[in-house]
């Protein structure tokens, strides 16, 4: 079974966000970029399926600027066998990304597609579900456990209030939540080997997909700053403040 994994290049998890002075967007100049953490979990799950002998091949795909190839090389170093880069400098939204991925699914015919549940830049949490709808495949979102069992996959999902397990027919789309696994670090020899693995470069036009969106970004602002308050010296003072100053007790 072939496993397809989508990865996204985003701002590094630890970088503090700055909004541009003209409020047009978040400032990404000279900012450290990395693979979206949920995509790392998706790659890890695919590589583990290969190590268990369930997956035969892991294909990584990314949509974005030329620099996204860095993240694809990371995916290859982590154990993906080959990569597809769909190059665009336009701001590709979830729907366009899902349309492109649907075309890749049509070409590659994977038994399973694994994506991160959301990207930490736009926080949309849409692409996997949209891909499932467009390919008419079942979806297991927010997965904390994935068990392939013959022609089915059991997915345990993190839902409000607890966990839900569902069974899906294969092929299926899975989106990874935080506790699906703990991703490994790439070893230096694997990073060297990854440079020689195949990486195909395509464009959205090759797939006949328009990137343009009907949603426009009018303005990006910093959120209202919350000011730190005071330190209290004792439990008594805390209770007094909550009762008489904040009036929440």
């Amino acid at each position: 079974m072939k496993v397809l994994v989508a990865v996204k290049r985003v701002i590094d998890y630890n970088v503090k966000i700055r909004v541009k002075a003209d409020q047009s967007d978040v400032d990404l100049t000279n900012v450290k970029m990395a693979m979206n953490p949920f995509c790392e979990i998706a790659i890890e799950e695919a590589v583990r399926l290969k190590e268990k002998g369930i997956a035969t091949e892991v294909v990584a795909v990314s949509i974005g600027p030329k620099a996204a190839q860095e993240q694809l090389r990371t995916a290859l170093a982590l154990g993906a066998d080959c990569a597809i880069h769909i190059e665009t400098d336009e701001r590709a939204e979830s729907l366009a990304v899902a349309k492109l991925l649907a075309k890749v699914v049509e070409e590659e015919q994977p038994g399973l597609v694994i994506l991160g549940k959301q990207a930490i830049d736009t926080d949309n949490n849409q692409t996997g579900q949209m891909l499932a709808a467009l390919t008419n495949l079942p979806q297991g979102t927010f997965a904390s456990e994935v068990v392939v069992d013959g022609d089915k996959v059991n997915v345990t999902r993190e839902i409000d209030g607890g966990l839900q397990t569902i069974a899906l027919t294969l092929p299926a789309i899975v989106t990874a939540d935080l506790r699906l696994n703990e991703p490994r670090y790439a070893k230096l020899p694997d990073i060297m080997k990854a440079k020689k693995k195949p990486l195909d470069v395509k464009t959205p036009a090759d797939y006949g997909v328009e990137i343009a969106s009907k949603v426009s970004l009018l303005k990006v602002e910093s959120p209202a700053e919350r000011k730190g308050g005071i330190k209290v010296a004792s439990v008594d003072e805390l209770i007094d403040k909550l009762k008489n100053e904040a009036k929440v007790l």
């Binding site: 966000i17 930490i120 830049d121 949603v215 009018l218 990006v220």
Partner: peptide
């Protein structure tokens, strides 16, 4: 909110 609520986007 975007970027974990560290920025607020106005979208049309």
């Amino acid at each position: 909110p975007i970027y974990a609520g560290n920025a607020i986007a106005t979208v049309k």
